[in-house]
Design a protein around this nucleic acid. Structure first.
Lengths: 141, 141
DNA sequence: GGCTGTATTGAAAATGACTTTCAGCTTCCG
DNA sequence: CGGAAGCTGAAAGTCATTTTCAATACAGCC
């Protein structure tokens, strides 16, 4: 998603596009897969060195609320973020040894109506995270 | 899993069974689906009122390490726990409105070899969480 | 049934990932 | 351009969880 497209989305919700937010956007784009606020902060500072970590948190919240990014929860107590790409819902595989995270592009979950859910429940979103070993770590262990 | 079976598992790893751990085990059994440390603490105190929250955290860690319980991550910044039942791997559905959590018993994920993973990756575990609305909340919104 | 080495416990303090507060600054609608 | 409303950074605050530490209690061994 280009900066101007993101700016539009933000404005549509009464938010503003700022230098800081552009820096965070650039960092998200540059880093790629599921990075946490600190990594994003560090990277964004290359573009805008005065950027505060607090601003990164606030920007990421805004991005998620407006559908520009989405949060990834790997269960290690910190939230990671991915830029939303149009239509491409995806998941992640995490190496249990080195922590590397990679994308899994196709979503293999059966349609919600085919899951046998407890009575009454309707499913609108799901999260799937895979854990295992990357090639390099598998060879070593 | 009965208390004595749990005691064996703990001892097999050089750990001990204590009154406190029995209380946590009873609480896990009584509460059922995916409850957090605080809820478990509150419940376990009915049996052993002096029980400290710290002990609950430590006990849950031990249980998870020894396969007596497992952690459930719903992405709200606190970890929940389920007692392990023999063989029954399951997932959860969470109501986005009232927060109710229910079990989804069958696991619908294709076999790992049928997932197209990034090259080199091997998957050993996965986590799947579903989100949507329970019958009561769906009716109201 | 005691002894004893070591795991376990609870209280208090520490940690770490966020969140809030607040005064000053910046966007952007008009 | 003007100014209301959104944003920013620093410092302080939350909150779930972890660590520290001295006292206690399991459990294998006489």
């Amino acid at each position: 998603m280009r900066a101007e497209r993101v700016a539009e989305r933000l404005r549509a919700r009464g938010r503003r596009m700022t230098v800081q937010r552009r820096a965070v956007l650039a960092a998200l784009r540059a880093l790629g897969c599921a990075r946490d606020a600190e990594a994003i902060h560090a990277r964004a500072r290359r573009v805008y060195p005065h950027l505060g970590l607090v601003t990164v948190y606030r920007t990421l919240d805004a991005f998620v609320a407006d559908g520009v990014a989405h949060a990834v929860h790997l269960g290690d107590g910190r939230v990671r973020y991915d830029l939303s790409e149009d239509g491409a819902h995806h998941h992640h595989v995490v190496c249990l040894r080195c922590g590397r995270v990679a994308r899994v592009d196709r979503c293999h979950l059966p349609a919600p109506r085919r899951l046998d859910l407890p009575r009454g429940f309707t499913v609108t979103v799901h999260r799937l995270e895979l854990f295992g070993y990357c090639g390099r770590c598998a060879r070593r262990s």
